[in-house]
């Protein structure tokens, strides 16, 4: 097989993996923004907290020896537990820092979110230390090769899990009663109350789901790169937010597409553009700016009125 093509295919696979992770984080941003028009700066921290919760749980289980006997069970268990934990954390943060400000100016809530982000990041740093925490390795076996493309089992797992979560979320939002309540609350909170929706509960749920997805991404990042770090939430956080804006903020499908685009562009830029490796973070932002300049509502965004943008 052609060498250049193999290289391209390899980058495609890497880009998809990274894009999937961004998409998972971006969903939390877009859902929260869609429902209360808030850039939830603390969202990146839920992602980091998920990664740390995963390493804590996995280390315990490894210490107890379960990791050798039932590795998959351990991974699944820590994944579910971290997602639940971050969901609850997000709900608590929402209740403490955002809900009392429901009727304040948007800048106040934004700063409150910024404060929470700094708070949580430093909480992580204080206890987990400033150094990287390593994930247990060697669970997934050696990578294999298909036509020159090196495939990591972890990548397959990430892709499968991402796809599964995205499908589940789509089902939840577009096919269930709860999803309808979420969409209705996002569109008109007063009217939703008038048809009997408790908007506070819906908002809590939205935070919980978003943070759960971010936590899943956090664990997968931990496995993929082998370690987690207290400040790991920031850069992926803003890139994921860029992805959400790129796709049209508030739009769930848009966030997924935006996440994959940002991930893909980053990998491709690093692979094909000279000095792209150093400037890959810049690429994500330049695309964002270009898209917003020519299409301010994002790729999938509806023409929303001024108050929403």
């Amino acid at each position: 097989m052609d060498n250049a093509f193999t290289f391209f295919a390899q980058q495609m696979l890497n880009g998809l993996t990274l894009g999937g992770l961004y998409a998972l984080i971006a969903l939390g941003y877009t859902m929260v923004y869609g429902i209360i028009q808030l850039i939830n700066f603390a969202h990146g921290e839920f992602f980091a907290a998920g990664g740390y919760m995963g390493v804590i749980l996995l280390s315990y289980m490894a210490g107890a020896g379960y990791m050798d006997t039932h590795p998959w069970l351990c991974i699944g268990f820590s994944l579910v537990l971290s997602m639940l934990y971050c969901a609850m954390l997000a709900m608590a943060v929402e209740k403490v820092a955002y809900k009392p400000l429901r009727h304040s100016s948007r800048l106040s809530v934004l700063l409150s979110a910024l404060g929470m982000s700094i708070f949580l990041q430093n909480a992580l740093m204080l206890t987990q230390g400033v150094y990287d925490k390593a994930y247990p390795g060697g669970i997934f076996g050696a990578p294999f090769e298909i036509g020159g493309v090196i495939v990591n089992y972890m990548q397959l797992l990430i892709l499968a899990l991402t796809a599964g979560l995205l499908v589940a979320l789509n089902f939840l939002v577009f096919k269930t009663r709860v999803g309808r309540a979420m969409r209705a609350t996002a569109q008109d909170k007063v009217m939703s109350a008038l048809v009997g929706i408790n908007s506070n509960r819906v908002i809590s749920l939205t935070f919980a789901i978003g943070a759960g997805l971010a936590a899943a991404a956090g664990i997968m990042v931990g496995f993929y790169y082998g370690s987690v770090r207290f400040e790991m939430g920031f850069v992926p956080g803003i890139k994921a937010f860029a992805a959400a804006v790129l796709g049209g903020i508030g739009n769930i499908t848009g966030a997924m597409i935006g996440g994959f685009i940002i991930g893909m562009v980053e990998i491709m830029a690093a692979a094909y553009i000279p000095y792209g490796g150093e400037y890959k973070d810049v690429c994500a932002f330049i695309i964002l700016i270009a898209v917003l300049y020519f299409r301010p509502t994002g790729i999938m965004g509806e023409n929303v009125d001024d108050t929403r943008v």
Binding site: R180, A181, R183, A184, Q187, D188, M191, V195, G196
Partner: peptide
């Protein structure tokens, strides 16, 4: 609800 269909809007009434 501008982005829900007519049928979904009616469904919301019976939420």
């Amino acid at each position: 609800f501008p982005r829900l269909s007519v049928a979904e809007n009616l469904d919301m009434g019976a939420f």
